[in-house]
């Protein structure tokens, strides 16, 4: 798979879009990982004693972050990542398509999800 791709790497309009796409990807990643760290390690561990002074619905807040809150935030972070990357892929025209030699279907094509969400959208960013 990888061999056939390398030949077709010459993109229309130079390599700038690659750098741009990758930079946006990295920026999103860094932001999400910063939230990941501050919620779990910050609220759940480093500042747990201070947060435990506050009690909501019976839960000391720091305790809640360690045993419940951080898991919900993790889930949300992955969802946000998926949605943003969908948008980024479409914006730069690198999303997987049914007909193209996309990342390795074995003939049985079933990317209905990808196709269905390819609605017309502009540069919202």
């Amino acid at each position: 798979m990888a061999e056939t791709e390398e030949k077709s790497l010459g993109p229309p309009g130079g390599d700038d879009w690659r750098r741009e796409y990758w930079r946006k990807n990295l920026r999103l990643m860094v932001v999400l990982l910063a939230i990941w760290f501050s919620v779990s390690f910050g609220c759940g561990i480093l500042f747990v004693e201070q947060l435990n002074q506050i009690t909501i619905a019976g839960f000391p807040l720091g305790f809640w972050f360690a045993q419940q809150g951080s898991i919900y935030v993790f889930l949300l972070l992955i969802l946000v990542y998926c949605l943003f990357m969908d948008r980024l892929d479409r914006e730069y025209g690198v999303e997987e398509r049914e007909d193209g030699p996309s990342g390795g279907g074995t003939g049985s094509v079933g990317e209905a999800r990808a196709a269905e969400s390819t609605t017309k959208e502009g540069g919202e960013s």
């Binding site: 056939t4 791709e5 077709s8 993109p11 229309p12 879009w17 892929d89 479409r90 914006e91 730069y92 025209g93 690198v94 999303e95 997987e96 398509r97 193209g100 030699p101 996309s102 990342g103 017309k120 959208e121 502009g122 540069g123 919202e124």
Partner: peptide
Amino acid sequence: PAARRREPTGA
């Protein structure tokens, strides 16, 4: 994700 780039929609 994709092997080749198609014309972008909203770059």
